[in-house]
C-alpha cells in the first residue's frame, strides 16, 4: 500500500452566511490520478483553494504527507511539493515561455540579492543552471521551440501545457489541475489527456484534478469524488460513479436548471 499524500478532514468554507463547502473529506494516495467533479458552482474550486492555501478554511484540516498545512501560506505549501494550475489559464503574459517556467524555480533560488548586484560567479553558475533545467523541462514537454515566445503569443492549447510545465518546475509531488480541459476542443482535450498521463509517469506525480467534463475524468482518473452544493455526495471508481443515482440526479438537475 502506498502512502497517503493528501488528506482533507471536514474542510468547511463559509462566506458570510453561505456555506460554499461543507465537511469535505478525502484521502489521495501517492501515484493516483484523482478527480473531483460536480456541477458548476458546487464548490470545487473553493475546495482547491483551501488545499493550496489561497483560502483559509473556516474549519477542518488539510494534511500533506501527515504534515498539517491548514492555513499555511501558499508559497510555503509550494516549497513542500504541491503545485497548481488555474481554471482560466493564468500565465505571466509579458514573460517568455522560458521565463514563465523559470519562475517556478524561484522558491529554491540558490543565489541572493548581493550575488545579483555584484554578478558573482555564483550568480552566473545558478542562473545558467536554471536556464538549462528550464530548457530541459520544456524539451520534455516538447515546447522547446517556443521557449522565447511571449506567453500571450501562444495558442490556447499550448498555453495550458506551459502552465503545467511552469507548475512542474516547482518540483511538485502533487499536482493540482483546476479544470484543465475547460475551453478546449475535443482534439485538444484528447491531447491533454495523454499529456497529463505522460507527465505523471515522467515526473512521478500524483495528480488531483477538478473537471466539469465527465468523459475526460472518466477516462483519466482512477478514483472520482463528486461534489454538489458544497457536499461530497459520492466517491469511487469511474464505473461506480457513472451508475450512482445521486450523481445522475445532481447532473440532471444541473441540466434542467
Amino acid at each position: 500500500m502506498s502512502n497517503i499524500i493528501l488528506k482533507c478532514e471536514n474542510l468547511t468554507m463559509q462566506f458570510g452566511g453561505l456555506v460554499a463547502v461543507n465537511k469535505f473529506s478525502i484521502q489521495i494516495r501517492e501515484g493516483m490520478i484523482f478527480g473531483l467533479i460536480g456541477p458548476n458552482g458546487a464548490g470545487k474550486t473553493t475546495a482547491f483553494n483551501m488545499i493550496t492555501g489561497n483560502l483559509k478554511p473556516t474549519s477542518g484540516k488539510v494534511y500533506f504527507y501527515d504534515k498539517d498545512i491548514t492555513g499555511m501560506k501558499p508559497y510555503k505549501i509550494v516549497s513542500l511539493g504541491m503545485a497548481r494550475t488555474f481554471q482560466n489559464i493564468r500565465l505571466f503574459s509579458n514573460l517568455s515561455v522560458l521565463e514563465n517556467v523559470l519562475t517556478g524555480y524561484h522558491h529554491k533560488l540558490k543565489y541572493n540579492l548581493i550575488d545579483t548586484i555584484l554578478r558573482t560567479p555564483r550568480f552566473y553558475k545558478y542562473e545558467n543552471q536554471m536556464k538549462e533545467e528550464g530548457m530541459k523541462l520544456l524539451e520534455s514537454v516538447r515546447l522547446e521551440e517556443k521557449a522565447n515566445f511571449r506567453a500571450s503569443e501562444l495558442p490556447y492549447g499550448e498555453r495550458r501545457k506551459v502552465e503545467i510545465a511552469r507548475a512542474l518546475a516547482t518540483g511538485p509531488k502533487l499536482l493540482l489541475l483546476d479544470e484543465p480541459a475547460a475551453g478546449m476542443n475535443p482534439q485538444e482535450t484528447t491531447d491533454l489527456m495523454y499529456f497529463i498521463q505522460e507527465v505523471k509517469e515522467k515526473f512521478d506525480l500524483t495528480v488531483f484534478l477538478i473537471e466539469h467534463d465527465m468523459k475526460f475524468v472518466m477516462n483519466l482518473c482512477e478514483t472520482i469524488a463528486v461534489l454538489d452544493h458544497g457536499v461530497k455526495i459520492a466517491e469511487g471508481k469511474p464505473e461506480e460513479i457513472r451508475k450512482n443515482p445521486d450523481v445522475i440526479k445532481a447532473y440532471l438537475g444541473d441540466i434542467n436548471a
Binding site: 462566506f15 483553494n49 489561497n54 483560502l55 488555474f86 481554471q87 483546476d178
Partner: peptide
Amino acid sequence: GEDLERGRF
C-alpha cells in the same frame, strides 16, 4: 468590511 477579494479564482 467583507473581503471584496474573495472568490478571486
